[in-house]
Computed example of a mutant assay.
Amino acid sequence: MLNKPIGIFDSGYGGLTVFRSIAAQLPEYDYIYLGDNGRSPYGNRSFKTIHEYTWECVQWLFKQGCPLIILACNTASAKALRTIQQQDMPGLHTDERVLGVIRPTAEVIGNYTQTGEIGVLGTKGTVQSESYLIEIQKFFPEIKVHQQACPLWVPLIETGEYNNPGADYFVQLYLDQLLEQSANIDTILLACTHYPLLQDKIEKHLPQDIKVVAQGDIVAESLVDYLQRHPEMEERLSKGGSRKFFTTSDDTQDFDHHASMFFCSAVQSEYVSVK
C-alpha cells in the first residue's frame, strides 16, 4: 500500500505540542512533521509572506503523499489557511484537505467560561488577524473576547530561556496587560502552540479561578471527529505508526534538541528545502 501519511506543519517547533496530542489519540497513523525553522518565526511577518511560506510547505507535504495536512500553527492558520483553501487548492488539489487549529478551538472554547469573557494570548500576527474574534463570534456570539499579543514569549521558548527566573517578568507583563482589559476574564486560551511550554509559569501568575486552555487535545479530538465524519479520507490514510520529522533549518541537531522538548520524546530530523 502506498504511504499516505498525515502532514503536520508549523513554522517551527510549536506544532509539535499539537502533534504530540494527535499521535497520542491516533497512534496507528503515519505522520510527517515539517517545521519551517529556516524562516521562523512567522509571528511578525506580513500576510503575503506567511501565505507564501505556508503554501510552499503545504505543497512539499503534498509531494510526500500527504492527502490531509494540519496547519498546527496559529499564525499560518490565521494568515494563510483561507487563501490556501479558497484560492490555491481548487483545481489543483481537489482530493486533498488542509485544516487549521483556529476553527476547532473556536468551536469549543465557549464551553469553558462561566463569566462569558475569554482572554486570548497569541503572536502579534494571530492577534492582528482577529481570526479568533471572528471565529468565536460565529459559535458563541454572546461571549466577549479580549486579545493580548505576547511577542517575546516565542523567542524565550525557542532560546531555552523560558525556564529561567527572568522569563517570569515577561509572563507577568503580558498577563497583566490582558487582565487589565477586564476583571471578568475566567478563561485564557493559549493561541500559540509554543505557549504550553510556559503553561506552568502562566498558571503560577494567575488567580486560581482562571482556567488556562491549551490547544493540543482540542485539535486532536477535532481530528478524530473529522476522520469519523469523512471515511473517504480516513480510508486513504496509511497506518504504519511511523513518525518522520523534517526541518528547513540546516542545523538538524539544534532542531532535534529543541523539538524533543516540545514533543516530549526523542526526535531525529532531516533537512529539506521546500522551494
Rank of each mutant, 00 (worst) to 15 (best):
K211N: 08
R236Y: 04
K244R: 15
H230P: 05
L223S: 04
I84R: 01
A78D: 02
V213P: 00
F246T: 08
N3L: 07
L173K: 13
R229Y: 09
F19I: 09
E52V: 04
D176L: 00
I70A: 02
D168E: 15
Y31Q: 04
Q253P: 13
Y271L: 01
R39Q: 15
V108T: 15
D254Y: 13
K244L: 14
Q25V: 08
I6F: 02
G160P: 14
E142N: 13
C150M: 04
P155M: 03
Q253S: 12
T94D: 15
D256F: 02
I69K: 11
H230T: 12
L81E: 08
A76E: 05
F139V: 08
Q172Y: 02
Q228Y: 11
M261A: 10
G65K: 13
I8D: 02
E107S: 03
L198M: 00
W60I: 10
E96Q: 15
Q59K: 14
A259Q: 08
K124R: 12
R229M: 13
P141T: 07
Q85K: 11
H194N: 07
T94W: 07
A220N: 09
T126V: 12
P5V: 00
K244M: 13
G38C: 06
Q228H: 06
F262I: 04
L2C: 12
T126E: 00
I218P: 10
C66W: 09
L92G: 06
V120N: 06
Q128F: 08
V219F: 13
V98W: 00
T83K: 12
I84V: 07
Q114I: 10
E203L: 01
M1T: 14
V108G: 11
W55T: 00
K124G: 00
Q172R: 08
M89C: 13
S222K: 05
F62C: 06
R45C: 02
G166D: 15
T187H: 08
L175P: 11
V272I: 02
T115G: 01
L26I: 12
Q253I: 11
L227A: 10
T54W: 10
S265P: 05
P141E: 00
F170M: 02
R82N: 06
L179I: 00
S182L: 03
K211G: 01
C66Y: 12
V58L: 05
Y132L: 08
C57M: 07
R229N: 10
S242E: 14
P196W: 04
E234L: 01
V58W: 07
A23M: 13
I118G: 10
L99A: 11
A80L: 02
F245C: 05
R20V: 01
N3Q: 13
Q181W: 00
S46A: 10
P196N: 01
F263E: 10
Y169W: 15
R103Y: 08
E96K: 15
H51I: 06
F246M: 06
E232K: 14
G110H: 14
G122V: 03
C73N: 01
D209M: 06
N37Y: 06
S238R: 04
H257Q: 15
T252H: 10
D200R: 08
V274K: 11
S273C: 09
L198K: 03
F255V: 14
Q137V: 03
L156N: 05
K138S: 11
L156C: 07
D168H: 13
L223G: 01
R243G: 03
L133Y: 11
I143Q: 01
L189V: 02
A76C: 03
G91I: 03
I218M: 01
V224L: 12
Y195L: 07
